[in-house]
Amino acid sequence: MIKEKIKTEHAILRIEIADDWSSNDFAALFESTSLLYQLFIEIDSIQHYPVGFFKDTPKPKDLESVIELNSELYKKMRFSSTYENSEKVESLGKLKRLDGPVISMDRNNLIIGEIQYASPGFSDFIGLGKILEQVFSLIQYYFPNKKERLENSIMEQDLLSKKIENLKSLGYSKKELKNFIDVRNSTILNLAELHQHRKITDFKIKEYLD
């Protein structure tokens, strides 16, 4: 994985791909990457408010249609058992420790910059640099390359889990926090399946120069 120092407001997350891809594979890639980005966007927005600012728990605007249990999320994702999701994501962490064009930007959604379908190929996702760096750090945590496994210094924590846990101070219930974690688990496991089958071969992040 390659990470460049991000100086611009926006950045590019490049996911390198190989082998034969089905429409379901692409759907899983786009859906999972988009939901991870939206999770970080939503939590980042919530955490800007001081403790006690909300009389009631602030409800996510961009994710309210997907984070509820028994929602459309579980029709879209391949891994529907929330219990099994937690176990599988945990095992990923344990395994890890053992070893352009002018684009109109929408803050809450990733923009597809470029796609090249070949072997090798890639898909470029453009979004806010500070959010994409967090997405990239989470990916590094679960899918380190050989060099990162040896160094083991960048994999100190699952950043998204820490952010979700911090929402307790704003009054989120265990059930509401679990909904965030269920989304995270499903997205990570979708990416893990593609990575394990060598359909995803690498992840990179770099500046977006508009």
Rank of each mutant, 00 (worst) to 15 (best):
K3I: 10
E4L: 13
I6Q: 04
I6M: 08
I6D: 01
K7S: 09
E9W: 01
I12M: 12
I17W: 03
D25Q: 04
D25M: 04
F26S: 08
F26K: 06
A27Q: 14
T33S: 14
T33A: 02
S34E: 10
L35W: 01
L35A: 03
L35C: 03
L36K: 07
Q38T: 01
L39F: 02
L39R: 04
F40Y: 13
E42N: 05
I43M: 09
D44V: 04
Q47K: 11
Y49T: 10
P50Q: 05
G52T: 03
P58S: 09
N70V: 01
N70Y: 06
S71A: 07
E72G: 14
Y74Q: 07
R78Q: 08
F79R: 10
Y83W: 08
E84G: 03
E84K: 13
E84W: 00
S86P: 04
V89K: 07
V89P: 01
S91V: 05
K94P: 00
K96S: 14
K96E: 06
R97Q: 15
L98N: 11
V102H: 11
M105T: 04
D106N: 11
R107D: 12
N108Q: 04
G113P: 06
I115L: 15
P120C: 10
G121H: 10
S123V: 14
D124V: 06
D124E: 10
G129F: 01
V135C: 08
S137K: 13
Q140A: 03
Y141C: 07
F143M: 15
F143Y: 15
P144G: 03
N145P: 01
K146H: 13
K147E: 15
E148A: 12
E148G: 08
L150D: 09
N152H: 11
N152R: 13
S153C: 09
M155I: 12
D158G: 05
L160W: 00
S161G: 13
K163C: 02
I164Q: 03
E165A: 08
N166R: 10
K168M: 00
L170I: 11
L170M: 06
G171E: 09
Y172A: 03
Y172G: 01
S173H: 12
K175P: 01
K175I: 11
E176A: 04
L177G: 06
L177S: 06
L177T: 02
F180L: 14
F180V: 14
N185Y: 04
L191A: 11
A192M: 02
A192Q: 07
E193W: 07
Q196Y: 07
R198P: 01
D202G: 15
F203A: 06
K204P: 01
K204Y: 03
K204D: 07
I205R: 02
L209H: 15
D210K: 14
